[in-house]
Simulated assay, not measured.
Amino acid sequence: MQDIEFTEEQVMIRDMARDFARGEIAPHAQAWEKAGWIDDALVAKMGELGLLGMVVPEEWGGTYVDYVAYALAVEEISAGDGATGALMSIHNSVGCGPILNYGSQAQKETWLAELASGQAIGCFCLTEPQAGSEAHNLRTRAELRDGQWVINGAKQFVSNGKRAKLAIVFAVTDPELGKKGISAFLVPTNTPGFVVDRTEHKMGIRASDTCAVTLNQCTVPEANLLGERGKGLAIALSNLEGGRIGIAAQALGIARAAFEAALAYARDRVQFDKAIIEHQSVANLLADMQT
Rank of each mutant, 00 (worst) to 15 (best):
M1C: 11
E5C: 10
E9Q: 07
I13C: 05
R14K: 14
G23S: 11
E24W: 02
A26Y: 12
P27M: 01
A29R: 03
A29W: 01
A29L: 01
Q30S: 05
D40V: 09
L42T: 11
G50Q: 00
L51D: 02
L52P: 01
G53H: 04
V55D: 06
E58R: 13
E58M: 05
G61C: 03
Y70C: 06
A73N: 12
V74L: 13
G80M: 02
G80C: 06
T84L: 14
L87N: 07
V94G: 12
P98K: 00
A106H: 14
Q107W: 03
Q107S: 10
W111A: 04
A113C: 09
A120S: 15
G122R: 00
G122F: 00
G122W: 01
F124Y: 11
L126E: 00
A135D: 09
E143V: 15
N152T: 12
K162M: 04
K162P: 14
A164S: 14
A167K: 11
A167E: 02
I168V: 09
D174V: 13
L177C: 13
K180T: 08
F185R: 00
F194I: 09
F194N: 09
V195G: 02
D197I: 01
T199C: 02
K202R: 14
M203P: 13
A207M: 06
D209K: 12
V213G: 07
V213H: 12
T214R: 14
T214A: 08
T214L: 09
C218L: 08
T219D: 03
A223G: 11
K231P: 03
I235Q: 08
S238Y: 05
S238E: 09
G242K: 01
G243M: 06
I245L: 07
A248P: 01
A249P: 15
A249F: 12
A249E: 14
A251N: 13
L252N: 14
I254F: 00
A257D: 05
A258Y: 08
A258R: 13
F259A: 04
A262M: 11
R267S: 02
V270Y: 05
A275H: 09
E278R: 12
N284L: 06
N284Y: 10
N284I: 11
L285I: 06
T291G: 10
